[in-house]
């Protein structure tokens, strides 16, 4: 390991970490603004120009709130819950390719923290771990509502990971690789996977809503039935971590969707732009395009949240097991037949 390599990765990790935190921070403002716009209001606009400092004010408020750990709670697990939630939310971004390799001072630098050859499996692993933060927190609170929320979170995540995995299998039939870097490189220019896998994308999209506990699948934290769900007993920054983890998850799953189905940093006419701007600024434009796609997805997440009411628990399970899994399996079969036929011709 040479020093330059370590510095390069360190800088990259720091930048991506900071980026996901800032995006998550401003997602909270965006959420409130979009909610307001969809309801004919203007949203927070007092803190700073146009409400731009609202996330800072919210964060400061969270810090100054009283920290309460319930008497009957399991102290260690009570703290471990939100820590795990935010940890798993943050490490998901490690395998996402943020752009093509840039050349700085004659050195090729990959805009990806690490290109492990089972990138998709890594993402799945991290996503599966994410539910532990919720479960541990809900369990350790020693509160009925928290426990109900945690149980719902667990069953929901398990149910929706299956169609999610099945929709990915159809994608892997096309790409023949698990590495996110190669999958992105295959979608050069126009060849976005969503054009070949529309049904798979739809299933994946619905499942990612469920995995991030966003409306209409926010049963683990539904206020109307469960007070606050798994974070009923949490206060101060520990509650902040849970809420924040949800926004980071949203950012990461938007990035994964953009990478897997919408070509990542690829966009039509990228060769021409790259030849015009050179090996440094060309890939950075690609990175901006990826961020743009991510923001569109985040907007979509919020748009859905303020449109669709929450599913009932039985509806949630019916949708997961009786609709999405058959659809995903059908998608695999169709993809398999299609690939075979195309190969034969």
């Amino acid at each position: 390991m040479e020093l330059a390599f370590i510095i390069e990765k360190f800088v990259l990790i720091t930048v991506i970490f900071a980026l996901s935190l800032v995006v998550a921070m401003y997602s909270t403002l965006a959420e409130r603004k979009i909610a307001a716009f969809l309801q004919d209001r203007v949203g927070p606009n007092r803190a700073g120009p146009g409400g731009l400092f609202q996330p800072l004010a919210d964060g400061a408020k969270m810090f100054f709130k009283e920290e309460i750990i319930p008497e009957q709670a399991s102290k260690f697990l009570f703290v471990a819950g939100p820590s795990l939630a935010i940890l798993t939310a943050c490490i998901g971004s490690a395998v996402i390719p943020w752009g093509e390799a840039v050349v700085i001072a004659g050195r090729m630098i990959d805009l990806q923290v690490t290109d492990i050859n089972v990138g998709i499996l890594y993402i799945f692993g991290v996503v599966s771990l994410g539910v532990y933060g919720v479960m541990i927190g809900g369990w350790a609170s020693n509160n009925k509502f928290s426990l109900m929320g945690a149980i719902r979170a667990a069953s929901q995540n398990i149910s929706y990971e299956i169609p999610m995995g099945l929709s990915i299998i159809a994608l892997l039939l096309l790409t023949n690789t698990l590495s996110l870097k190669e999958i992105t490189a295959q979608q050069h220019g126009w060849h976005w996977n969503v054009l070949y896998q529309p049904l798979g994308f739809l299933v994946f999209l619905v499942c990612s809503f469920a995995e991030t506990n966003r409306t209409p699948f926010d049963l683990p934290e539904c206020e109307t039935e469960l007070v606050g769900g798994y974070h009923t007993e949490y206060s101060s920054m520990k509650l902040g971590f849970y809420l924040f983890a949800e926004y980071i998850n949203m950012f990461i799953s938007s990035a994964v969707m953009a990478t897997l189905y919408f070509g990542g940093y690829n966009y039509p006419g990228m060769d021409w732009v790259n030849s015009l701007l050179g090996p440094l600024w060309g890939p950075l434009v690609g990175m901006m395009v990826l961020l743009l796609k991510i923001f569109v997805f985040i907007f979509f997440f919020m748009w859905v949240r303020w449109t669709v009411p929450r599913f009932r628990y039985d509806q949630l399970m019916n949708l997961g097991w009786k609709v999405l899994i058959p659809l995903a399996i059908a998608n695999i079969v169709i993809t398999g037949i299609w690939i075979t036929v195309v190969d034969k011709l």
């Binding site: 716009f37 969809l38 004919d40 748009w303 449109t307 669709v308």
Partner: peptide
């Protein structure tokens, strides 16, 4: 859902 989303989008 798509019908509902069209309605909310118009409200923007």
């Amino acid at each position: 859902i798509f019908r509902g989303m069209a309605i909310t989008f118009m409200h923007m």
